[in-house]
């Protein structure tokens, strides 16, 4: 836990063949890492629909991690390259929505890299902790809070939103 007492909530999408197996290896190797990450198994990182990432943020996640096989080692030949493209697109898109793109991270972890995956998770948790809470949980269901949220975002990004003369 950080000094500000903030316990981030992070969702990790792990591909079945490399990264989920890496998380299994981290387990069998008894590597300790931050418990603040919740894991979802998908067959391939290419299955991660951008809407899942947005939904995770909408449901209150402070960060989303996508982990897949290293480029060239995808179990499905080349699908992780599509993940790479989506990740780039999503980061751009998140920024438009007032979410720091740093809240989304893509990691390559092979089935042999349990230790590395654990370290990457710890690093991400620490980075999200620095960013602070996203405070989006429930915001979109309540129209009043939504208005407030828009104002907050507008205030936070006032500089960026200013029309360049």
């Amino acid at each position: 836990m950080s000094e500000n007492g903030f316990k981030p909530r992070i969702v990790a999408f792990l591909c079945n063949w490399c990264s989920y197996t890496a998380s299994d290896l981290a387990g069998t190797s008894r590597v300790k890492y931050s418990p603040r990450v919740r894991m979802i198994r998908v067959m391939c990182s290419g299955r991660v629909d951008p809407s899942f990432v947005l939904k995770a943020f909408a449901l209150g996640a402070d960060g989303v991690l996508i982990a897949g096989c290293h480029p060239g080692d995808c179990h499905y030949i080349e699908q992780n390259y599509k993940t790479m493209r989506r990740h780039a697109m999503l980061r751009y898109f998140l920024e438009q929505m007032g979410i720091q793109p740093e809240r989304l991270r893509l990691v390559w972890a092979s089935a042999a890299e349990g230790q590395y995956l654990a370290e990457s998770i710890d690093q991400f948790v620490a980075d999200v902790q620095k960013l602070g809470p996203l405070r989006w949980s429930g915001v979109w269901e309540d129209p009043w809070r939504r208005e407030d949220a828009f104002d907050e975002i507008a205030a936070e990004h006032a500089e960026a939103m200013e029309v360049q003369a």
């Binding site: 969702v11 067959m43 391939c44 290419g46 299955r47 939904k55 989506r86």
Partner: peptide, 27 residues
């Protein structure tokens, strides 16, 4: 792998066991 399912703009591409409905519900 489900990459097509993630990309389908109209939600017509579905996947057994790893469908949008299952993953969303898990999330």
């Amino acid at each position: 792998c489900g990459t097509c399912v993630a990309a389908c703009p109209s939600g017509a591409a579905r996947q057994h066991l790893f469908g949008d409905e299952q993953i969303s519900e898990e999330l």
